[in-house]
Write a protein that binds this DNA or RNA. Structure first.
Lengths: 244, 244
DNA sequence: GTCCGATTTAAACGGTCGTTTGAATCATAC
DNA sequence: GTATGATTCAAACGACCGTTTAAATCGGAC
């Protein structure tokens, strides 16, 4: 089993990163199942077996691709939130600060990483809708602490809004963002989506997205639904279905 | 080549629909590439070759799965919009009417079709982020006329908002909706997403989603972006306050 | 009954997949 | 120089894929 060594050739890290970069692009374009190790290693200009030598399996390669940037992104997200809360000195943050710390950091980080950052952005958006088991595990492990922190911050920022509602709206915000990134090209084919040029999408996207997200987050609460309140045990005897 | 015949056995439609139902579920769970004809026909309880006999190829089967419900959905969307505009008698519609006609019809139709409607809902949400070529063609052909009609309706409903901005926000709304449906289970694994039980998600989703979408759609415009280059519309400089 | 087109079935085809193997190559330490 | 361990390489393995074939089966029309 390939263990990373200290006496690595200068070409070693190059090969690893070339594979990671190629995998990032191919996974984004074809999805996890649609991508093949042969295409990835071919695009990277390395031998087919090099992929398995450095990463063990296709699954682990995909995990590494996700982790490589996701870890930095979420660390930065936590750092920004820490800084905001430190400055606020105990007072609740403004919702706009929280939303910008989460989604703004996502887009700014991607922009800072150049075209590959954009590729990764779209890969995340795509991946979040693939309910494969091992992918869910990766995302869970990497996202759970961040989401918990941000959820808590939103709860304190909007004490008058039912927590259930905040969770839903966080969900909607995630969807609008992921989809805005992942689905741009798809929908551009659907209609003459008369937005600006492709290249300055990301620059123009952030302010537009922030306005939309904040508008949705602060929208008036929906009229009373069927459920009376945020009662914890609503499903009395109903089953929940599981997949085999 | 298999052409539909007039002297079809009673079992004929059963086989076809059993395959379609199974394909719908498998495509949703595994994605297009991850699904296999063997699993689909196995789940349907029919022979492997029956899938190719009735649908020709995996690609055409997928198209048929999409078309089967999408066509009805978009016809209904157009019908509802026609009815609204007819009643309005030339006056612009309210944004809430348009949003409800598009997204509310989506969710209500899905609910009306039972558990399979929910499966299809999630399949659409997933499919929209798969930029495969032939999928984009399918979606384009089926969505383009509907999107054009609704875009035009929104332009008339919000004459003071730059059209480019409306298009972007329509995009965001689509994302929030698709993702809210497709990604529910994924994100449920990420954190203890303390929403209600799974089964009454759809019932509770509609009012919450509508509030969020309308809040985002009517949010104050973002401050002037860096480059107002491709903005032939009015009021490029300053943001405007929304109307409540 | 026979006939015939529609449907189902079992079996196979060629191809691609992820993965493994074992030898060749390279860089370095001695 | 040789020895050593990390890396690359060509080639193969078995499994699964979408698709096709040709025979078997079915259901009415006559």
């Amino acid at each position: 089993m390939g263990a990373t060594s200290q006496t690595a050739t200068a070409d070693n890290r190059d090969t690893r990163e070339r594979i990671l970069d190629a995998a990032e692009a191919v996974f984004m374009a074809c999805g996890y199942d649609g991508a093949s190790m042969r295409q990835i290693t071919g695009d990277a200009g390395v031998n087919l077996a090099a992929g398995h030598y450095h990463f063990g399996s296709k699954e682990d390669l995909f995990k590494t691709v996700l982790y490589r940037r996701l870890r930095l992104l979420n660390q930065e997200r936590l750092r920004v939130l820490d800084e905001l809360e430190s400055k606020a000195d105990g007072a609740p943050l403004k919702p706009s600060q929280i939303v910008d710390a989460f989604f703004g950091t996502l887009l700014r980080t991607a922009i800072a990483h150049g075209p590959r950052g954009r590729t990764f952005l779209r890969l995340i958006g795509r991946t979040l809708t693939e309910p494969s088991e091992f992918i869910a595990t990766v995302l869970s492990k990497e996202f759970a602490p961040v989401l918990e922190r941000y959820k808590a911050a939103l709860f304190r920022a909007l004490p008058e809004v039912p927590r259930e509602e905040i969770v839903w709206r966080f969900h909607f915000m995630l969807g609008a963002t992921s989809y805005a990134i992942a689905g741009v090209d798809t929908l551009r084919l659907v209609t003459d989506w008369q937005t600006g040029a492709v290249d300055d999408d990301l620059d123009q996207l952030l302010p537009r997205l922030m306005s939309f997200l904040l508008g949705g987050l602060r929208a008036p609460l929906p009229a009373a639904t069927a459920a009376p309140s945020t009662s914890p045990t609503r499903g009395n005897g109903r089953n929940r279905r599981k997949k085999p």
